[in-house]
Design a protein around this nucleic acid. Structure first.
Length: 409
DNA sequence: TCTGGGGTCCTAGGACCC
DNA sequence: TCTGGGGTCCTAGGACCC
């Protein structure tokens, strides 16, 4: 079998670029797309003009403002970004049926064996880049290599708006001088531990004694070492993997210890997560509540259910108990509150066994589905529980008092 | 300086069962 | 006085990615 040809495409400063494609007057200006909270957001995407000031993704917005006060700061409009992503996907699917969207702004395409139909992969990549620039007015970078790992690293090295091909057989030599942090899976923590062993480049990691690495990294050390040598056989998988969890979380404009406020927020989050769950036709068997305290430490509590559920009433009952437990054990104020639903399975196959339980669950689920119907027709805010209406009122007070808008996604 | 939100995967320890 | 061992499930926390 001949060498594989994998194309990795990554959009440059995607959210900021989409905003700029719709507002040409922003051309050449520093643009920062960030969260919706005045005080506590972080940067989601920064144009390269903004990056020149040291601004980068995940930086607190307050810091970004200090670094570049005259930058254009915009709230995220994820529906637009999703639409642009869909268009990019359709371009890619014209090239190959083997297209994997790795995220909203990143994709892999397997071009192996396409040369006769499409021509030289390098020219295919150039044409693709040009098409995205012309038709969507968006910049992107592309890496070409014999596997996904090296194509992705090459793509990263090509940024912005570049194109880089790693010839077959050159994978290890290409990675060798690069820092290990270019490898997916090596974050700040692992990099710091490897740096203690004076392992900072891919070449050093590739040549390190296996036993030493296993002591530091555990059973995955050898897999990581193979990646440092540019070896990767993972396939391009067009089918999206089944979703494993659904979560909703919010960081408050001001830390709170108010039980009614926290409970009402939890209700809102449970309804939103439950709505997402039912839209996917799923139920969940595990509910978790996450709290980030004022000191930024995070705690969570989870409970496994005897039967899967998709009822907001059940989600809220379980989540409420978990929140109470967390609040009982920690006297700090709450900075972030979140709910996570996991152990997902198609809904409808299993019902609770006890008749009384079943009727309660069934009725609650029916009610939830009626509300979903109204939401899908008249908007997600068209109908809400009384407790959430109270929350709106309280958040209104908060908004006036703190000047910070609480706008759930 | 003051730290989002939505995900995936992994690990360690405890409970429980045989 | 001495208290195995393996398997599985559950929980909590953390690293990492975009």
């Amino acid at each position: 079998m001949g060498a594989r040809v994998i194309l990795c495409l990554d959009m440059d400063a995607f959210f900021a670029s989409v905003e700029r494609s719709l507002r040409p007057e922003l051309e050449g200006k520093p643009v920062v797309v960030g969260g919706h909270l005045e005080g506590r957001g972080v940067v989601s995407s920064a144009s390269y003009e903004a990056r020149a000031y040291g601004i980068h993704a995940a930086m607190p917005l307050a810091q970004a403002r200090r670094l570049c006060p005259h930058a254009v700061f915009l709230p995220g409009r994820f529906e637009l970004y999703h639409q642009a992503s869909q268009q990019i996907r359709s371009f890619l699917e014209e090239l190959s049926p083997w297209v994997e969207m790795a995220s909203i702004d990143e994709a892999f395409v397997d071009l192996t064996g396409s040369e006769r139909a499409l021509g030289d992969p390098l020219q295919v990549a150039r044409n693709l880049q040009e098409r995205i620039r012309q038709e969507l007015r968006l910049p992107c970078s592309i890496g070409l290599a014999g596997n996904k790992l090296v194509a992705k690293v090459a793509c990263g090295r090509a940024k912005p708006a570049g194109l880089l091909q790693v010839p077959p057989g050159q994978e290890a030599a290409f990675l060798a001088p690069l820092p290990i942090t270019v490898l997916p899976g090596i974050g700040p923590h692992t990099a710091a531990r490897l740096a203690e062993l004076r392992l900072t480049t891919c070449a050093e990691l590739a040549a390190a004694p296996a036993r030493l690495l296993e002591r530091i990294l555990g059973p995955h050390a050898l897999a990581l070492q193979r990646r440092a040598r540019g070896e990767d056989r993972s396939p391009v998988t067009p089918c999206s993997q089944p979703v494993r969890s659904i979560s909703r979380a919010v960081t408050f404009p001001h830390d709170s210890r108010d039980p009614a406020f926290l409970r009402a927020t939890l209700c809102l989050l449970a309804e939103e997560a439950g709505y997402a769950l039912r839209r996917k036709g799923l139920g969940c068997s595990c509910v978790a509540v996450q709290v980030r305290w004022a000191n930024f430490s995070t705690q969570s509590r989870q409970q496994t259910l005897r039967h899967p559920t998709a009822s907001d009433t059940t989600l809220l009952r379980v989540a409420g108990d978990l929140l109470d437990d967390l609040l009982d054990r920690n006297r700090q104020r709450v900075r972030l509150l979140g709910i996570q639903l996991s152990r997902l399975a198609p809904q409808g196959a299993q019902l609770p066994l006890l008749p009384s339980d079943r009727f309660g669950e069934q009725r609650a689920l029916q009610l939830a589905r009626c509300l979903d119907h109204i939401r899908s027709r008249y908007g997600s805010r068209s109908i809400q529980r009384g407790s959430v209406l109270n929350l709106r009122k309280r958040l209104g007070e908060l908004e006036e008092g703190g000047g910070n808008a609480f706008r759930p996604p």
